[in-house]
Design a protein around this nucleic acid. Structure first.
Lengths: 239, 239
DNA sequence: AATCCAATCTTGTATATACAGGTTGTAAAC
DNA sequence: GTTTACAACCTGTATATACAAGATTGGATT
């Protein structure tokens, strides 16, 4: 967990801020004080503080110090790759996952394009609905390169696929691109979700890359529009 | 522009990658080579490379080097605060801004809540429509604290407000929070936009903070849903 | 020919130091 | 009393150095 010193400091303070034991506006110890407290150098402390700043936990002011930001108001996910499981656990809501499909299929032309496949090779396909408080709100359609994910158990699909991929397969997931748009509902959406009479649906296309920059997963996450929300934290310039 | 050495290196490479003179997959010089080339230290080079990595321009692999990511495929905005003017200029589309309202008004209860005002003091209100290729697609409603923005000219509202705030008023904008959701259209939306028959609209709520962490602007950007797109780049862990 | 290993690249982490420049409070000067 | 100057903090930038650890290469050994 805390392999590095700066990660240790980062985890300490991000946890304290998330839990609320450090409240908004409060001043952190100075960099020199933290360096002494953790028995390390100022540069190492600065690395941790920079990460806290980048992730919206604190705000640094030259000449004054580091101050806790209002993460309650910020809500979450504060950008970044956050899985459904992580979010639903934090929400503390009654949540259920229904697996409709979990098998190896030949890729269609569209999927091949999304995964940058040259030939129409096989892909592992997972289709799941996310039920929140009795209503099927989200339809997740995942496609994996069989090179990296030859097969997937129903248990893994029902729980967190990311947990399985990272902890069991040790796939080095590095970064992802999200595209959010609104599209017309498909017959499949109507069939697999509780859509009421909405004619449109929010589509989040997620392209996930490994550390060697190969695109190995494409996910289409289709949200009923009244339940969709996305939060993003951004800095104007680097501090 | 290039006050710092690491900013200089960052600007050099981000420009080269954006322009395409460095293409995807290409390897950057090693950190030691860059340090020598710029006549600086390795740590300074690393700061620049870290920023390029955070902003989705490059990808670092331990033991191998830094590699250019496919920013074409990434498209933009690669997260961050990107103004309408910046986006439309990059798109090269015919774009027009229509200012409906630009005046000081007493704040409503809802606006006071959004701007965290204790009393219902005055705010500077700007309402603008963005016309893209002949259709009014986006409705921007801006509210500013009069403490920081006592007034705003029609020219500033028609061009880029950010440009005016940062370059003329020298307001130290620091960070912002975006919330994206989908809501039902209001009579005002129908009146001020070319909405066709859409019953819903994408609402991007933008809370902009200064370096002293005071919230000074609240913006509601209302997009016709067929034209809305948001792109986000995220790293799983820090590299 | 295949395997192993050491040398040598690369990036990642950590430390110590120096100075620039913003912020604040205090003491001296007016 | 008000202003000015300064010292003592703070963070920001930059440099030099050291070692750890992943990647690659080529040569020696098997």
């Amino acid at each position: 967990m805390n392999k590095n010193i700066y990660m240790h400091i980062y985890n300490d303070y991000s946890a304290q801020i998330q839990s609320g034991s450090l409240s908004a506006g409060q001043k952190l110890p100075s960099e020199n004080e933290l360096a002494e407290a953790y028995g390390t150098s100022r540069e190492t402390v600065r690395k941790a503080l920079h990460m806290l700043s980048e992730n919206g936990y604190i705000h640094k002011i030259k000449g004054k110090g580091s101050f806790v930001l209002d993460t309650q108001r910020m809500s979450f996910p504060v950008s970044g790759l956050v899985t459904f499981k992580e979010v639903s656990e934090r929400l503390g809501r009654s949540v259920r996952t229904i697996v409709y499909e979990n098998e190896c299929v030949p890729s269609t032309a569209e999927i091949a394009r999304c995964l940058q496949l040259k030939d129409l090779g096989p892909v592992w396909k997972v289709v799941r609905a996310r039920e929140i408080e009795g209503e099927k709100i989200i339809l997740d359609k995942d496609y994996f390169l069989t090179t990296y994910v030859p097969s997937l158990s129903i248990e893994a699909a029902t729980n967190s696929i990311y947990e399985y991929l990272e902890q069991k397969l040790h796939l080095p997931i590095s970064y992802a691109k999200k595209e959010i748009s609104v599209e017309e509902v498909t017959p499949e959406d109507k069939q697999l979700l509780d859509l009421h009479d909405y004619q449109h649906i929010v589509v989040v296309r997620n392209y996930v890359y490994l550390v060697d920059t190969t695109l190995f997963q494409y996910t289409e996450s289709r949200h009923r529009l009244d339940k969709f929300q996305f939060v993003d934290f951004a800095r104007r310039v680097q501090n």
